[in-house]
Simulated assay, not measured.
Amino acid sequence: MKALLITDQTEPLLISDVTLPEVGEHEVLVRLKAVALNRRDQWIRQGMYPNIKFGSVLGSDGAGIVEKVGPDVSDSLIGHEVIINPNVKWGSDDMAQSKEYSVLGMPKNGTFAEYIVVHENRLADKPEHLSWEEAAALPLGGLTAFRAIFHHGHLKPGDNVLISGAGGGVAQFAFLFATAIGANVYVTSGSSDKIEKCLNAGAKAGYNYKDDQWFKEAHKISGGFDVVIDSAGGNQINDFIKIMKPAGRIVFYGATNGTPEKLDMFRMFWNQITLQGSTMGNDHEFEDMVSFVKKHEVHPIIDSVRPFEDIISAFDDMKAGKQFGKLVVTL
């Protein structure tokens, strides 16, 4: 079968012919119909991810059809249309992942292939209202956003929420989920085009974070924020602190801008503000996220779709950072 591997050659991505994986106990073979990229995949390509295992099949997001089942797995699963939960060994504590935790797609072989073998408990039924491309876009970004928005952010209808870096994979799901429950959604971006797209999709207002004083206008118009969802960290954390309502929650699921040079702890303690880290989410949250998507008929935002033989070009687009929504590949 065809698969995309991470290698130690000059171009670290290589489409190769590899052996079809065997199906063991409690496992299933899924014929993938579509897969989607995440920032994690490009970081691995660039050597910016810990403990890279060369020869691994990349990819965390995918959707397809169960084609074969192993011993002790019901034959009734054959033919089911499914999406794949990318969690590997989250553990028994829903509050935080175990020390053995990893994400599908390195070191465990991932979705960027014609077939994948996973444990039967990694499957969820594909929501009927989603296309294959939309279903493939959902798992990692959707789960990360769901945990940040609801588990840590405690977002409710009518709350004011600011989502930074609008257009990224997780950010777009945070936008969709918050909009679905009737929150007042505001966004930031360095791109006026992305801000305009969010406004057209229901955002109350958008702000260009390249403007040093953007947060003053945001606070004036919104009256303050109950929740901020952020992926960048850095000094802008202090801008968020200035515009929070009392007892507001700042939830960050990444730190691409590093740590802030200083932290306005005085304003934080006086206003009872929480600064909370977050990751992808546990298995129960994955089930809840899929149910939420079904109930609200959420449609992931797709930037582009291309065939598997052009998958490396999708990595190039992700590196350029101009996409709005998910980069999807069909098989």
Rank of each mutant, 00 (worst) to 15 (best):
K2T: 05
A3E: 14
L14A: 15
V18M: 14
T19H: 02
L20Y: 01
E25I: 13
H26W: 10
R31Y: 09
V35E: 03
N38D: 13
Y49R: 05
Y49C: 07
G62N: 09
A63E: 10
A63V: 14
A63C: 14
V66G: 03
D72P: 02
D75G: 03
N87Y: 05
D93W: 05
Y101Q: 10
L104D: 04
G105R: 06
E114K: 09
K126T: 09
K126G: 03
K126M: 07
P127L: 01
E128F: 13
H129A: 11
L130E: 07
W132G: 12
A145Y: 01
A148Q: 13
H154G: 09
G158D: 13
G168F: 02
Q172S: 15
A178T: 10
A178G: 06
T179D: 09
T179H: 14
T188M: 05
S191G: 04
I195A: 04
E196I: 04
L199K: 14
G202S: 11
K210V: 12
D212K: 15
F215M: 08
H219D: 15
K220F: 13
S222F: 12
D226H: 15
N235S: 02
D239P: 05
K242D: 08
G248D: 02
F252P: 02
Y253C: 06
T256V: 15
T256C: 00
P260V: 05
E261T: 10
K262L: 09
F266D: 00
M268H: 05
W270P: 01
Q276I: 01
G277Y: 00
S278W: 00
S278C: 07
N282K: 02
E287H: 14
M289R: 02
F292H: 07
V293S: 04
K295N: 14
H296D: 00
E297S: 15
I301D: 04
S304N: 12
S304D: 13
R306Q: 15
P307Y: 11
I312S: 12
S313Q: 13
F315A: 07
D316A: 08
A320P: 10
Q323Y: 01
